[in-house]
């Protein structure tokens, strides 16, 4: 749930980039960081430690300007893709307003993609977030590689419900902003509808 602060007139929306390890989540965020004017973004924070546990995440605040008199910011997070960081993933998912699933389009990564998707579903539920209604966008990354699945196959295997999806080559920035724009629209729409 987005953090609406009436006192300081701020809305902070949380968008989490989810997906298997080495799928390109951080690459997505880093590309956004490089492309966006410094005045419209904060610092890209990577990795933070906190007391007795260790959190691994990238964090990038983006400034969207004023929306109905509220200063609106998007906070982009990535989760650690490695399986054993599930606690961190749950923590980062807490209060998420939207999720981008960055799938690795390589054929041999299909299984990890499927596992990660299932893990996302479980973790969303554990954070009292409805996997069916939370704004969600699918990104098929690394489409420039040789051994990738076709988009039809990917859609069939990973996106049977037909969520909005984009093909991407995140290292080159292809599809990065399309994905971000799509999830942004969905999140803002959800907020305006009071969801």
């Amino acid at each position: 749930m987005s953090l609406i602060n009436y006192a300081s007139r701020e809305i902070n929306c949380k968008i989490v980039y989810y997906g298997p390890g080495l799928g390109g989540k951080t690459t997505n965020i880093k590309y956004v960081y490089k492309q966006i004017d410094p005045s419209a973004r904060g610092k890209l924070v990577s990795l933070a430690t906190e007391a007795d546990r260790t959190l691994f995440f990238d964090f990038l605040p983006l400034d969207l300007g004023q929306v109905q008199g509220f200063k609106t910011r998007f906070h982009l997070y990535t989760v650690p893709g490695q399986v054993h960081y599930d606690a961190s993933r749950r923590l980062i998912l807490k209060g998420a307003d939207g999720v981008v699933f960055v799938a690795d389009a390589q054929r041999e990564r299909l299984e990890q993609n499927v596992e990660s998707l299932e893990n996302l579903r479980v973790n969303l539920i554990s954070q009292n977030l409805d996997p069916e209604t939370i704004p969600f966008v699918m990104q098929y990354n690394k489409m420039d590689l040789a051994n990738v699945m076709t988009s039809e196959e990917l859609e069939q295997q990973l996106n049977p419900k037909g969520y909005l999806s984009f093909e991407a080559i995140a290292v080159e920035g292809i599809g990065v902003f399309d994905t971000l724009k799509a999830i942004s629209k969905l999140v803002l729409k959800a907020i305006s509808e009071g969801r």
Binding site: L3, N12, K43, F59, P61, R73, H75, K94
Partner: peptide, 10 residues
Amino acid sequence: DMGIAYKEMG
């Protein structure tokens, strides 16, 4: 921003 991030994570 980090304060907000921590807050959101609980």
